[in-house]
Design a protein around this nucleic acid. Structure first.
Lengths: 205, 205, 205, 205
DNA sequence: AATGAATGAGCATTCATTCAT
DNA sequence: CATGAATGAATGCTCATTCAT
């Protein structure tokens, strides 16, 4: 590897790292203030630069969220797919998916918040049709799991799985709104509380 | 009542009715597209008029959401207070509050969605400080109920009521995002499914 | 004269009277707030009616000022012409013109203020070209008088009549800004003070 | 001084200069058309840019007049204060104040016109309360001078100083409406004409 | 005569985006 | 890489004006 190539390699790596830093900053701002009402200037200021300078790194404000969300969804589905491929029973799969979800919140809180809060708005653009695809896949995953669990006797008969799915879908992610990494509870502890509530109910037995 | 008085009464009533109609339209648009990104022109178009015409009826875009949200919150707290004042046990109170919430969703779906989705953004303005007040009251209501229920043996010991409250808070309202009045399920049926899930868990016993 | 004709006559008179009332009100509002920034609604409210109702009486906001100003200018020039036609000497003419001016302020304060403050703005429209004509005539009247007075030994030699005229032009009318009919000083007393200042100077002799 | 510091200094200076240019342009437009009826687009066009671009330099249309007027008033009072502090007699003070005023007109004609024409309108906003303060100070300055001059025998006994002050106040500034720097007469010559008129009167003696 | 509701053009202002330096 | 100045489309809002009642 020539010096020149090493230079260009390290430059490319440095550039990728800078992009990642900027995206992390942007994600934080988008998450805390809302994508639509956040100005490019605000993102830039949080990154210590002026508004126009961001355009050296990114095509547009839209391409920033795009990158944030697609990176997140890629990682999320990789995690879910690992769980689904591991051949666990309904209950264990349920627990593993919920645990994975809270780990995603732990590691990608801003992205999760953006996904949760801005999907509806962003989906109106064809560029973000993958958000709808992801939601549909998410729906099928949970519905199949719930149906399987009812059939194999894991889950209560008589559940309206369509309704339950909807509650699960939203509930899993809303924790991103209040969870703080390094706070009183770890992601796994929160997952445990959540699983107890959903699986066993909150009534004393 | 003289003709003059009847006239002025019917005029005032007609005016109030028109306002209510327009607010209902505005609420629907705000709810489906998001308050911040909805333009006044869009609201007006949905109401069959031009942008400027709305200002004959309302002071500002802000005053529209204000009216929508405060009317909703007033009614919501009236319903909650009725439940709280009726001296039910923890479990019955829990059930009644959840049922009331789903009835609110049934009758004020757009307002609930706006409350759920836009509170964070709106709260940055002092005009909407009552949203924070309401949230705080909501928090205390549920925490007290959960704590009471744990003490009197209704709810499972070992619950982190802080965590459970947060899930409840969000979960109750997200249904506004998908519930359709007149759909397959009534509000009461959805409440029942939800209560089963939360109180008894979804595991078969 | 038939009853019908008398009716229509009295109706026409009543209408003219109403117009005059409304114009007086409009003049007052235009004068105190400024024509451009006064809304039709404000004028209407001052007249005890709603914005749209004024359009039963007048074609437009513009036609209101038009009527106010042309009525005023007509009367003003009638007064000036009477003075000019009476064959007085330079000094007496000067005094009489100034006295007439202050009487105009006394009787048509709002119109004078509008004339003074809004001429520049209104003159940009061809409809108000008569304002420029009036100003030009005013200029010639004073310049001729000053020149005549210098020639006949009444006024000081060495005066730059162009400059003096400009001061006179503005000074005569600005009193409209603070004069209050029925206040401490009558219009004639103010005219006397003004004439002393201009004719004899304020230095003690 | 390092290159870096010189750069930043020249940048800041360039920026200040640009602001000053734009303010001068804005002042001219506000003065000639009237502040309220001048649109931001007109100011921008006069500066060779588009409406929105002005907001890179200024917060609002209001902040532009604010800056124009407060800069003018600061300089005006500095000049007046120099005169007042120099211990001249009544007559010389009078002459010096008038001369200073015409020099202000010479150097800040647009600002003087805005001050003269728009004060009433702007004063309705608390932001411009300093305009009223300045007017009040102006009033006291002249009244004290007139009173002093009457007492020490400089000015004619029997003058209604309240009335004379009002004429002076307006008269001094209206020249801004027609004075053209570089025209036939210098500011000092106009001041001389004005002083002759006011002090000695226009009658031949 | 007057009302009340609506129109539509125009305004101040914001903001994503561009680009010469 | 980043700046700073500018663009231009879009937004909330105002207001003279119209018109059916």
């Amino acid at each position: 590897m020539s010096a020149r190539r090493r230079d260009s390699a390290s430059t490319a790596a440095a550039r990728a790292e800078r992009r990642a830093e900027l995206l992390a900053t942007a994600a934080e701002v988008f998450a805390s203030r809302g994508y639509a009402v956040t100005t490019v200037r605000e993102v830039a200021e949080a990154a210590g630069m002026l508004g126009g300078s961001l355009y050296y790194h990114f095509d547009s404000k839209e391409s920033m969220v795009d990158e944030i969300l697609s990176a997140f969804l890629t990682e999320m589905w990789a995690a879910y797919d690992r769980v689904l491929a591991s051949g666990l029973g309904s209950r264990e799969t349920f627990q593993a998916l919920v645990a994975e979800s809270f780990r995603m919140i732990d590691r990608h809180r801003p992205a999760v918040m953006i996904y949760q809060n801005e999907s509806r708005y962003l989906s109106t653009s064809p560029r973000f049709s993958y958000l709808l695809d992801s939601q549909e896949r998410f729906r099928q995953m949970w519905l199949e799991l719930l149906d399987r669990g009812v059939l194999d006797g894991t889950f209560r008969v008589g559940l309206d799985t369509g309704v339950i799915y909807r509650f699960l879908r939203d509930t899993v992610w809303v924790a991103a709104g209040w969870y703080r990494s390094g706070g009183r509870l770890t992601a796994d502890e929160i997952a445990r509380q959540y699983l107890t509530m959903i699986l066993d109910g909150i009534l004393s037995t």
